[in-house]
Simulated scan of single mutants.
Amino acid sequence: MNLQQASSTNQPISDELRRWVTEQLAAGHTTSALRNSMREAGWMQDAIDAALGAEAPAPAQAPAQAPVVPRSAMPGPALDGAPLYLDAGDRQVQVLLTMGHPRVVVFGDLLSQEECEGLIAAARERLARSLTVETKTGGEAVNVDRTSDGMFFTRGESPLVQRIEARIARLLNWPVEFGEGLQVLRYAPGAQYRPHYDYFDPAEPGTATILRRGGQRLATLVIYLQEPAQGGATTFPDVGLEVAPRRGTGVFFSYDRPDPATRTLHGGAPVLAGEKWVATKWLREREFV
């Protein structure tokens, strides 16, 4: 329709005009923009109001965001038959605790004393103030909620790291390539990590950038390398669970969707005496690059 030809003292609201309005709204143009276009084409205000007011079709509503559906394929140990021990390839690992919601499993003897000391020794000279992933920007930043020092090993960086990563992959039935590099953290007296979620919030603007490296985080494994003298438990406030940081023990938890309904809010309680060292492995939905 040629709007310029519509200009006259008698301006009926024709079916052709209604179709034009419908097409423009469907194309994403606002009512305000259409008013300006009609005014510039010579339409009178009463005709504009009639075409774009109560009689005009409403713009299409944006589709509601699809609900986040739980995943069917998830990392985790095979616990059919309630085993007391699991075969992790080069080591038998104890099953100390299981919980269904949130999905939590505590493993005993996951690492030997020598392996714990080896990770600490390799990490000690590379420690720096821990950063957190910033879902608002897609980068990393210092966060007052996290007061540890830490570092990351690259995946497969050393024979020790390779051996531990292979053990984790077998225990949790998830490919080595789908894991982030092993992170080692030191918590001095007073240090803590306030309750938080490990998944990346889909509503935050920086999440799309983060997900390019391997998709969502699906699970976390925290392994205690050194016990503090007091404090330092891993806490799950939604269910009142506290896991004591005993050397060689690991606490695994998974989250099948990025939603608080997973009840995976967790934190590192303040260390009250001594130092706590942990190694953390985050598992992604596809290969982490």
Rank of each mutant, 00 (worst) to 15 (best):
residue 197 Y to W: 09
residue 246 R to D: 03
residue 248 G to H: 03
residue 233 A to V: 02
residue 273 A to G: 07
residue 256 D to T: 07
residue 246 R to H: 09
residue 261 A to K: 00
residue 243 V to Q: 05
residue 259 D to W: 05
residue 228 P to L: 07
residue 195 P to E: 12
residue 259 D to M: 07
residue 203 A to D: 06
residue 194 R to W: 08
residue 233 A to Y: 00
residue 197 Y to I: 08
residue 277 W to T: 02
residue 198 D to W: 05
residue 192 Q to T: 15
residue 278 V to Y: 01
residue 212 R to F: 00
residue 253 F to H: 14
residue 232 G to C: 10
residue 222 V to H: 01
residue 239 V to P: 11
residue 194 R to Y: 01
residue 190 G to E: 07
residue 259 D to C: 14
residue 210 I to H: 05
residue 238 D to W: 03
residue 205 P to D: 09
residue 242 E to F: 01
residue 231 G to F: 04
residue 237 P to I: 10
residue 195 P to G: 14
residue 200 F to E: 08
residue 257 R to H: 12
residue 277 W to R: 06
residue 193 Y to I: 10
residue 214 G to L: 04
residue 227 E to R: 04
residue 253 F to N: 11
residue 246 R to S: 08
residue 275 E to Y: 05
residue 191 A to D: 11
residue 241 L to A: 01
residue 227 E to F: 00
residue 189 P to C: 14
residue 275 E to D: 15
residue 196 H to Q: 14
residue 245 P to D: 12
residue 222 V to I: 10
residue 189 P to I: 10
residue 271 V to Q: 01
residue 222 V to K: 02
residue 242 E to G: 04
residue 195 P to V: 09
residue 191 A to V: 08
residue 262 T to D: 11
residue 264 T to W: 09
residue 253 F to P: 15
residue 269 A to P: 11
residue 207 T to E: 01
residue 225 L to C: 07
residue 229 A to Q: 13
residue 263 R to Y: 07
residue 225 L to D: 04
residue 202 P to K: 07
residue 190 G to S: 07
residue 257 R to I: 08
residue 219 A to V: 04
residue 246 R to A: 11
residue 252 F to D: 00
residue 209 T to H: 03
residue 267 G to N: 13
residue 267 G to W: 06
residue 207 T to C: 01
residue 198 D to F: 10
residue 248 G to L: 03
residue 195 P to F: 00
residue 266 H to K: 02
residue 272 L to N: 01
residue 235 T to H: 00
residue 220 T to F: 01
residue 249 T to K: 11
residue 248 G to K: 01
residue 222 V to T: 06
residue 209 T to A: 10
residue 221 L to E: 03
residue 263 R to F: 12
residue 270 P to D: 13
residue 217 R to V: 03
residue 234 T to K: 03
residue 205 P to G: 10
residue 270 P to Y: 09
residue 251 V to L: 00
residue 250 G to P: 08
residue 252 F to A: 08
residue 267 G to S: 15
residue 224 Y to I: 06
residue 252 F to L: 03
residue 206 G to Q: 08
residue 233 A to D: 15
residue 255 Y to L: 06
residue 204 E to S: 15
residue 268 G to F: 14
residue 262 T to E: 13
residue 236 F to N: 09
residue 256 D to K: 05
residue 207 T to D: 01
residue 213 R to H: 13
residue 222 V to S: 11
residue 270 P to A: 15
residue 257 R to K: 11
residue 225 L to S: 07
residue 247 R to H: 02
residue 256 D to I: 07
residue 210 I to F: 02
residue 228 P to M: 11
residue 199 Y to Q: 08
residue 254 S to G: 08
residue 199 Y to V: 13
residue 260 P to V: 07
residue 249 T to F: 13
